[in-house]
Simulated scan of single mutants.
Amino acid sequence: MSLGGIALVGSQATLGLAGLAVGGAKVTHQEDQVDDFQRFGYPQWFRVATGIIEILSGIGLLAGLVWHPGLALVGGLLLSGVMVGAIITHVHIGDPLSKTAVPAFLLALTAALLAGQHLVQL
């Protein structure tokens, strides 16, 4: 496997685990997540729905490593959508750049992963 292939697999695994971790924190009612969604002005059911989407994205990214690569595409698109929403939320409520940096980094990494996978398939 080439260095680029190793980087793609590592990025996909990292993003998959990140999706599971942050989604898990939301659906298990971690205090910081509950507080953040209250601060954002979102209802708590939206926190749980967001967590489920993040978990599904993580499963898709990880399953794409083992089974069909199309699962990684779906997982990456789901995670990208959540990260766009997170960035918009942080900017809208006036959070400092440090709060926006993590979702922006995850969005950039997901976009790079999806672009890299597309290039490999060509």
Results as ranks from 00 to 15, higher is better:
residue 28 T to A: 09
residue 87 I to Q: 04
residue 5 G to H: 14
residue 7 A to R: 12
residue 42 Y to D: 13
residue 104 A to D: 05
residue 26 K to L: 07
residue 87 I to N: 07
residue 62 L to S: 05
residue 109 L to A: 14
residue 25 A to V: 03
residue 5 G to W: 05
residue 84 V to Y: 06
residue 100 T to S: 15
residue 112 A to L: 15
residue 58 G to W: 00
residue 90 H to W: 03
residue 67 W to E: 11
residue 3 L to S: 12
residue 30 Q to A: 15
residue 41 G to E: 06
residue 16 G to R: 03
residue 19 G to M: 09
residue 50 T to R: 02
residue 49 A to S: 07
residue 14 T to Q: 04
residue 47 R to N: 15
residue 50 T to M: 08
residue 102 V to C: 00
residue 64 G to W: 08
residue 65 L to R: 01
residue 107 L to Q: 07
residue 118 H to R: 15
residue 38 Q to D: 12
residue 12 Q to C: 01
residue 17 L to D: 01
residue 92 H to N: 07
residue 105 F to A: 15
residue 76 G to A: 09
residue 32 D to K: 11
residue 22 V to I: 11
residue 17 L to P: 05
residue 98 S to Q: 13
residue 106 L to C: 11
residue 38 Q to P: 00
residue 92 H to A: 13
residue 6 I to W: 06
residue 65 L to S: 04
residue 108 A to C: 03
residue 26 K to C: 02
residue 116 G to M: 14
residue 93 I to D: 05
residue 71 L to K: 06
residue 104 A to M: 04
residue 51 G to F: 05
residue 13 A to F: 14
residue 48 V to T: 13
residue 1 M to H: 13
residue 93 I to P: 00
residue 65 L to P: 04
residue 91 V to C: 00
residue 32 D to W: 09
residue 105 F to E: 02
residue 121 Q to A: 15
residue 26 K to S: 09
residue 71 L to S: 07
residue 6 I to Q: 09
residue 48 V to C: 05
residue 45 W to K: 05
residue 8 L to Q: 06
residue 102 V to H: 03
residue 90 H to P: 07
residue 82 V to T: 13
residue 6 I to A: 13
residue 118 H to N: 15
residue 112 A to F: 06
residue 81 G to Q: 02
residue 88 I to M: 11
residue 43 P to M: 06
residue 115 A to W: 15
residue 52 I to W: 09
residue 49 A to Q: 09
residue 79 L to N: 03
residue 41 G to F: 03
residue 21 A to T: 14
residue 111 A to N: 06
residue 104 A to K: 04
residue 31 E to P: 02
residue 50 T to N: 04
residue 87 I to L: 10
residue 77 L to G: 00
residue 92 H to Y: 04
residue 72 A to K: 12
residue 33 Q to S: 11
residue 98 S to I: 13
residue 52 I to H: 01
residue 67 W to M: 14
residue 33 Q to I: 00
residue 85 G to D: 12
residue 69 P to F: 05
residue 97 L to W: 15
residue 42 Y to F: 14
residue 95 D to Y: 00
residue 26 K to R: 12
residue 62 L to M: 06
residue 37 F to T: 02
residue 35 D to H: 08
residue 85 G to H: 07
